[in-house]
């Protein structure tokens, strides 16, 4: 079909303009903002002052540590559970669709709503009653740094589990049944089948899921805000929350907030590049 050369550009123009105005330009602008010093709302050029402060700021390193600890546990736990669930759902259970629908509901909820609901479970004594045999009566989850982090991780796993499972399941369904039948014929048991067939074939899917979850972990904010707001002390003040606090509270330091967001951007960028490369490799091996 012959069309005017401008036609495709006209089609992509609205989308590209919106992306440029809301995503691309602000990202570049944050680089510029991060070089500004804000004093009582007035900006002046400060060069790398914000970054110099950043590397010596204990609270920043604390926030980075909180994000990493959260990320490692969140990604690991979600991966293990989503893998097991995907293997179960791959077997065409009679009530499979019903189970899957229920497990998916948390993904359809706002993080504030989820956070508030988890607070009740931990503030109204339900969780305390459940763990009483192990921790003794009246264990105050949200009052201890480890407990508070645990609650946030639990709530985030709860919300993201189904999404991760769906991606693993989609990967599983591309593995053809014949391979399994052949393995069964060769007398392989299920354990062998999993480690020698499923696992290697699913490796790209696993990488993709881990990366998607890691990106979610780096940017997780809602649960932190609605469950602990960083407390107790600064023990759950993740990077995103620390960034948010720079501009949401006095002294409203946009420059420093922007510097933190540049760091977060770089973290995201590294994960995104890794992700795209994995997808590329996967599609070339699939084509071969």
């Amino acid at each position: 079909m012959r069309v005017n050369k401008i036609y495709p550009y006209l089609l992509v123009a609205p989308a590209m303009l919106l992306i440029a105005a809301v995503s691309l330009y602000p990202t570049l602008y944050s680089l510029w903002l991060s070089l500004q010093r804000f004093r009582r709302g007035v900006a002046s050029f400060g060069g790398l002052t914000n970054y110099q402060f950043l590397v010596t700021d204990d609270n920043f390193w604390n926030a980075l540590r909180v994000t990493l600890i959260f990320g490692v546990f969140f990604v690991l736990i979600t991966m293990v559970f989503s893998f097991v669930l995907a293997l179960v759902f791959n077997r065409r259970l009679r009530f499979g669709p019903l189970y899957m629908t229920i497990i998916f509901i948390p993904w359809m909820l706002s993080e504030v709503v989820s956070g508030i609901m988890f607070l009740w479970i931990f503030n109204f004594g339900i969780a305390d009653a459940l763990v009483a045999p192990f921790f003794g009566e009246g264990y105050q989850f949200l009052a201890s740094p480890v407990g508070a982090m645990g609650v946030i991780i639990l709530a985030t796993v709860w919300r993201s589990l189904a999404f991760a499972m769906l991606i693993v399941l989609a990967g599983l369904q591309t593995v053809s049944r014949e391979i399994y039948e052949a393995a069964g014929l060769d007398g392989a048991n299920r354990w062998q089948t999993f480690w020698q067939i499923t696992w290697p074939l699913l490796l790209p899917t696993t990488t993709v899921t881990i990366l998607l979850l890691s990106i979610q972990a780096v940017n997780a904010t809602g649960m932190f805000l609605s469950i602990t707001r960083g407390g107790p002390g600064r023990s759950t003040e993740a990077l995103s929350l620390y960034m948010y606090n720079q501009v949401a509270r006095p002294p409203f330091d946009f420059g420093y907030g922007a510097a933190i967001s540049v760091v977060m951007f770089l973290l995201n960028m590294a994960l995104a590049i890794f992700y795209i490369r994995t997808l590329r490799r996967e599609s070339t091996t699939a084509a071969a």
């Binding site: 602000p26 990202t27 940017n219 967001s261 977060m264 995201n268 960028m269 995104a272 992700y275």
Partner: peptide, 8 residues
């Protein structure tokens, strides 16, 4: 891949 958070 880049969530909106960093350009907020």
């Amino acid at each position: 891949m880049l969530p909106g958070l960093t350009n907020l």
